[in-house]
Amino acid sequence: MEKVSLAFHGKLNILDNKAGTAIDKKAIDSMAEEYMSIMSTNFESAFLVCQLAYPLLKVSGAGSIVNISSIFGKLF
Score class of each variant (00 low, 15 high):
residue 1 M to R: 10
residue 1 M to W: 05
residue 1 M to D: 04
residue 3 K to R: 14
residue 3 K to H: 09
residue 3 K to L: 11
residue 5 S to Y: 00
residue 5 S to E: 00
residue 5 S to T: 00
residue 6 L to G: 06
residue 7 A to W: 00
residue 8 F to K: 01
residue 11 K to C: 06
residue 11 K to T: 04
residue 11 K to N: 08
residue 11 K to R: 14
residue 12 L to Y: 01
residue 13 N to C: 11
residue 14 I to P: 02
residue 16 D to L: 15
residue 16 D to I: 15
residue 17 N to Y: 02
residue 18 K to E: 09
residue 19 A to K: 10
residue 23 I to R: 12
residue 24 D to K: 15
residue 25 K to I: 02
residue 26 K to I: 11
residue 26 K to T: 13
residue 26 K to F: 13
residue 26 K to S: 14
residue 27 A to R: 07
residue 29 D to S: 11
residue 29 D to C: 03
residue 30 S to W: 02
residue 31 M to I: 09
residue 31 M to S: 11
residue 31 M to P: 00
residue 32 A to F: 11
residue 33 E to D: 12
residue 33 E to N: 12
residue 34 E to G: 07
residue 35 Y to N: 09
residue 36 M to Q: 15
residue 37 S to A: 14
residue 37 S to Q: 14
residue 37 S to Y: 07
residue 37 S to L: 08
residue 39 M to I: 15
residue 39 M to W: 08
residue 40 S to T: 03
residue 40 S to Q: 08
residue 42 N to F: 00
residue 42 N to G: 04
residue 42 N to A: 06
residue 44 E to W: 07
residue 44 E to V: 14
residue 44 E to T: 12
residue 45 S to R: 08
residue 47 F to G: 03
residue 49 V to Q: 05
residue 50 C to T: 01
residue 50 C to D: 00
residue 51 Q to C: 03
residue 52 L to D: 08
residue 52 L to K: 14
residue 53 A to W: 00
residue 53 A to N: 04
residue 53 A to E: 02
residue 53 A to G: 09
residue 54 Y to W: 11
residue 54 Y to K: 08
residue 54 Y to G: 01
residue 55 P to N: 01
residue 56 L to P: 08
residue 57 L to G: 02
residue 58 K to Y: 13
residue 58 K to Q: 12
residue 60 S to N: 04
residue 60 S to R: 02
residue 60 S to M: 05
residue 60 S to P: 08
residue 61 G to D: 03
residue 61 G to R: 06
residue 61 G to H: 12
residue 63 G to Q: 00
residue 63 G to N: 04
residue 63 G to W: 01
residue 64 S to K: 15
residue 65 I to F: 04
residue 66 V to P: 06
residue 66 V to C: 05
residue 67 N to T: 09
residue 67 N to Q: 13
residue 67 N to D: 09
residue 70 S to R: 11
residue 70 S to N: 04
residue 70 S to H: 06
residue 71 I to L: 12
residue 72 F to W: 10
residue 72 F to H: 15
residue 73 G to P: 03
residue 74 K to D: 10
residue 74 K to H: 15
